[in-house]
Lab assay of single mutants.
Amino acid sequence: MTEYKLVVVGAGGVGKSALTIQLIQNHFVDEYDPTIEDSYRKQVVIDGETCLLDILDTAGQEEYSAMRDQYMRTGEGFLCVFAINNTKSFEDIHHYREQIKRVKDSEDVPMVLVGNKCDLPSRTVDTKQAQDLARSYGIPFIETSAKTRQGVDDAFYTLVREIRKHKEKMSKDGKKKKKKSKTKCVIM
Rank of each mutant, 00 (worst) to 15 (best):
Asp108His: 11
Gln70Arg: 01
Val109Thr: 13
Arg149Lys: 06
Asp126Gly: 09
Ile84Leu: 14
Gly48Pro: 08
Phe82Trp: 07
Leu23Tyr: 11
Gly138Val: 03
Ser89Arg: 10
Ser181Leu: 14
Gln150Pro: 15
Thr74Gln: 05
Tyr157Thr: 12
Thr158Val: 10
Lys117Glu: 13
Arg161Ile: 02
Arg135Ser: 10
Gly75Val: 02
Glu63Lys: 05
Met188Cys: 07
Ile55Arg: 00
Asn26Thr: 08
Val81Asn: 05
Asn116Tyr: 01
Tyr71Phe: 03
Thr183Ser: 08
Met111Gln: 02
Met72Asp: 00
Gln70Gly: 04
Ser17Leu: 01
Leu79Cys: 06
Lys104Phe: 09
Lys165Arg: 11
Thr58Val: 02
Met72Lys: 01
Thr127Tyr: 14
Ile163Trp: 06
Leu113Lys: 02
Lys104Gln: 13
Phe28Ser: 02
Glu98Ala: 04
Phe156Asn: 05
Thr50His: 12
Ala130Asp: 12
Ala155Phe: 15
Phe82Tyr: 11
Ser106Val: 12
Ala66Gln: 06
Gly10Cys: 07
Glu31Pro: 04
Gly12Phe: 07
Gly15Phe: 02
His94Trp: 13
Lys182Cys: 05
Leu113Met: 10
Asp57Val: 00
Tyr71Asn: 00
Thr183Trp: 05
Gly77Ile: 12
Ala83Cys: 10
Gly60Glu: 00
Tyr40Thr: 00
Asp33Thr: 00
Thr58His: 00
Lys16Glu: 04
Val103Arg: 04
Asp126Val: 07
Lys176Asn: 09
Tyr40Trp: 01
His95Val: 10
Gln99Leu: 12
Arg102Asp: 10
Asp173Trp: 12
Lys169Tyr: 15
Ile46Asp: 15
Lys176Thr: 14
Thr183Asn: 11
Tyr137Gly: 12
Asp69Gln: 03
Lys177Ala: 12
Leu133Phe: 08
His166Asn: 07
Tyr157Gln: 11
Glu31Gly: 06
Gln61Glu: 12
Tyr137Trp: 13
Thr148Ala: 15
Asp69Ile: 03
Lys128Met: 06
Ser39Glu: 03
His166Leu: 08
Cys185Trp: 06
Val9Gln: 03
Gly151Lys: 04
Leu79Trp: 02
Gly115Pro: 06
Met111Asp: 02
Arg135Leu: 08
Ile84Thr: 14
Lys172Thr: 15
Glu63Gly: 03
Asp173Glu: 05
Gly15Leu: 03
Leu159Glu: 01
Phe78Leu: 02
Ile55Thr: 10
Gly48His: 08
Lys169Asp: 14
Ser171Trp: 04
Met72Asn: 01
Lys117Asn: 13
Arg102Asn: 14
Arg97Tyr: 14
Gly60Gln: 00
Thr158Gly: 08
Asp92Phe: 06
Lys165Glu: 09
Thr158Cys: 09
Val29Phe: 06
Tyr40Ala: 00
Pro110Met: 02
Gly174Ser: 06
Gly174Cys: 03
Lys178Pro: 09
Asp54Gly: 03
Val81Gly: 05
Thr20Met: 04
Asp153Phe: 06
Arg97Trp: 15
Ile93Met: 10
Asp105Cys: 06
Thr144Gly: 04
Glu162Gly: 07
Arg68Tyr: 01
Asp108Tyr: 07
Phe82Asp: 04
Ser181Lys: 14
Thr158Leu: 09
Val114Tyr: 03
Val109Arg: 03
Asp105Leu: 12
Pro121Gln: 10
Thr124Met: 09
Ala66Val: 09
Leu53Lys: 09
Pro110Trp: 02
Ser89Val: 04
Ala66Phe: 07
Val44Met: 15
Leu79Gln: 00
Leu113Glu: 02
Asp173Arg: 12
Asp54Val: 02
Asp33Gly: 00
His27Asn: 11
Arg97Lys: 12
Pro140Arg: 08
Lys178Val: 14
Val114Asp: 01
Pro34Met: 04
Gln131Cys: 09
Gly48Cys: 05
Lys128Asp: 05
Ser145Pro: 02
Gly77Lys: 01
Asp38Ser: 02
Ile84Lys: 14
Gln131Lys: 06
Val44Asp: 13
Thr35Gly: 00
Ala59Asn: 01
Cys185Met: 15
Asp47Ile: 02
Arg41His: 12
Lys88Phe: 15
Ile163Thr: 06
Arg102Gly: 05
Asn86Ile: 02
Cys118Gln: 15
Ala155Cys: 10
Asn86Glu: 13
Gly15Cys: 01
Thr124Ser: 10
Asp69Pro: 03
Val29Trp: 05
Pro121Leu: 08
Asn116Cys: 14
Lys175Met: 12
Arg164Met: 10
Asn116Ile: 12
Lys128Phe: 08
Lys177Asp: 11
Gln131Gly: 13
Gln22Tyr: 04
Val45Cys: 10
Thr144Glu: 02
Val81Tyr: 03
Asp154Ile: 06
Leu120Cys: 10
Leu133Trp: 13
Gln61Val: 05
Asp69Lys: 01
Ile21Tyr: 13
Lys88Pro: 15
Ser106Gln: 14
Cys185Asn: 05
Gln129Cys: 15
Gly138Phe: 10
Gln22Gly: 08
Phe156Thr: 04
Val186Glu: 15
Asp38Pro: 02
His95Ile: 04
Val103Tyr: 06
Leu120Val: 12
Asp47Ala: 09
Leu23His: 12
Val45Asp: 13
Ala66Lys: 02
Asp92Gly: 05
Arg41Trp: 10
Gln131Arg: 10
His95Ser: 14
Leu53Asp: 03
Gln43Glu: 13
Lys179Asn: 04
Ile139Leu: 15
Asp30Ala: 10
Val112Asp: 03
Phe28Asn: 01
Ile139His: 08
Asn116Phe: 01
Lys184Cys: 08
Arg149Met: 04
Ala66Leu: 04
Arg73Gly: 03
Asp154Met: 06
Asp126Leu: 08
Val114Gln: 03
Lys117Ala: 14
Ile21Leu: 15
Asp57Arg: 00
Arg97His: 12
Asp30Asn: 09
Ser136Lys: 10
Gln150Glu: 08
Ser122Trp: 06
Asn26Trp: 11
Lys42Trp: 06
Val114Ala: 04
Asp38Glu: 01
Val14Ser: 09
Asp132Phe: 06
Met170Gly: 14
Glu107Tyr: 06
Ile84Val: 13
Gly75Leu: 01
Arg149Gly: 10
Gly138Ala: 08
Arg102Cys: 15
Glu168Arg: 06
Ala18Cys: 08
Lys176Val: 07
Ile46Tyr: 13
Glu37Ser: 00
Gly15His: 04
Cys118Val: 09
Arg161His: 09
Gly12Glu: 15
Gly60Met: 00
Gly115Asn: 04
Lys128Ser: 06
Ala146Val: 05
Asp57Asn: 00
Leu23Gly: 06
Glu31Arg: 04
Thr183Cys: 03
Ser136Leu: 12
Thr20Val: 08
Arg68His: 02
His27Met: 15
Leu53Trp: 07
Thr20Glu: 02
Asp153Leu: 07
Ser65Ala: 12
Lys101Asp: 04
Ile187Gln: 09
His27Pro: 02
Lys182Arg: 06
Thr74Trp: 12
Asp33Pro: 00
Arg68Phe: 00
His95Phe: 10
Tyr32Val: 02
Met188Pro: 15
Lys42Cys: 08
Phe156Ser: 02
Glu3Asp: 13
Lys182Asp: 15
Asn86Leu: 02
His95Lys: 09
Ile21Lys: 05
Asp54Ile: 01
Asp54Gln: 03
Asp30Tyr: 08
Arg68Glu: 02
Gln22Phe: 06
Glu62Pro: 06
Gly48Trp: 06
Ala11Val: 12
Ile187Thr: 08
Gly48Leu: 06
Lys175Cys: 05
Thr87Glu: 12
Arg73Glu: 03
Leu52Lys: 14
Val109Gln: 03
Cys80Gln: 04
Leu19Ile: 11
Gly10Leu: 01
Phe78Glu: 00
Ser65Ile: 09
Ala11Glu: 13
Gln43Ser: 13
Tyr4Asn: 12
Tyr64Ile: 00
Pro34Trp: 05
Pro110Tyr: 01
Ala18Val: 05
Glu62Ala: 04
Leu19Cys: 13
Gln43Cys: 08
Tyr71Ala: 02
Lys5Ser: 09
Gly15Ile: 02
His166Cys: 08
Lys42Leu: 11
Ala146Phe: 01
Leu53Met: 11
Thr58Tyr: 00
Val7Asn: 04
Thr144Ala: 09
Gln43Lys: 13
Leu23Asn: 14
Met67Phe: 02
Ser17His: 00
Leu79Gly: 01
Arg123Thr: 11
Glu98Gln: 08
Asn86Pro: 11
Ala83His: 13
Val114Gly: 01
Glu162Asn: 11
Tyr157Met: 08
Glu3Trp: 05
Tyr157Leu: 12
Leu113Gln: 04
Gly60Ile: 00
Val45Asn: 15
Ile84Gly: 15
Met72Cys: 03
Arg68Ala: 04
Phe156Gln: 02
Val103Met: 05
Met72Glu: 01
Phe141Cys: 07
Ile187Lys: 10
Leu120Gly: 14
Lys101Val: 11
Ser106Arg: 14
